[in-house]
Amino acid sequence: MAKQADSHEEWLKQQAEDSKRKQEAFMNGIAQKLRRPRVTSAPEHPFRGAPDFWQAFEWPLEERVDRFEANFKAAGGHVERLADMEAAKRFIAEKAEALGAKYVIRQNQPELNGLGLEETLAASGAEVRVWNSEAEENWRARAAESDFGIVIADYAAAYTGSVTVLSSKDKGRSVSLLPTVLFVLIPLERLKTRLGEILIRFDEAGREQLPAGIHFISGPSRSADIENDLTIGVHGPGVVHALLIG
């Protein structure tokens, strides 16, 4: 078994060498076809990003809330504005009770850790698992069997009705993807107007700071592939609750 792994490593190394050689040939070929020498320093890019008139565009908070709600609902999602995290907990507990949820998985985020979801949901017979809280567990399978997934959004954009979630050790990509029902908690100060306000942060952060997965979610999973008839919940969550907190 170890030998196999070694040889695969060797193969990858060999491929990397080949790839670098080929990369040079590829780039030289491109320059040649463009009939100029290779471009090796950053060219002037005068059209970077959205048009100028768009860059300064921003809605006041209440309008952001209204627009986010309208857009998210239009895409088939549900939106609630709640006073605080306690209210969010009550909302989730009511849904768990009403739908008879058995398994719940949540991100390992500080705002959720202090909430006592485990005790509250246990009362209605639901077991809450915390993502990646034990090393040996098969977390993908745990997420796949969950009725509810609970995450806190890193950002949200009102103009498109989208929430953004970033992956990390404590924030699984599966938690917002595999469960049947998804709850996304959005602290109000993270709600922006435009996508660009969020995207620019990834440029500013730079490659080394980026997580493996950055996901924008704008409603429940959907398809119109059979006779244009809209179906909800094809692969991802079919019910998505966006809870605006604050």
Partner: peptide, 9 residues
């Protein structure tokens, strides 16, 4: 926007 837009790094 599509329901999902994912950037994989």
């Amino acid at each position: 926007l599509t329901v999902y837009m994912s950037g994989i790094t």
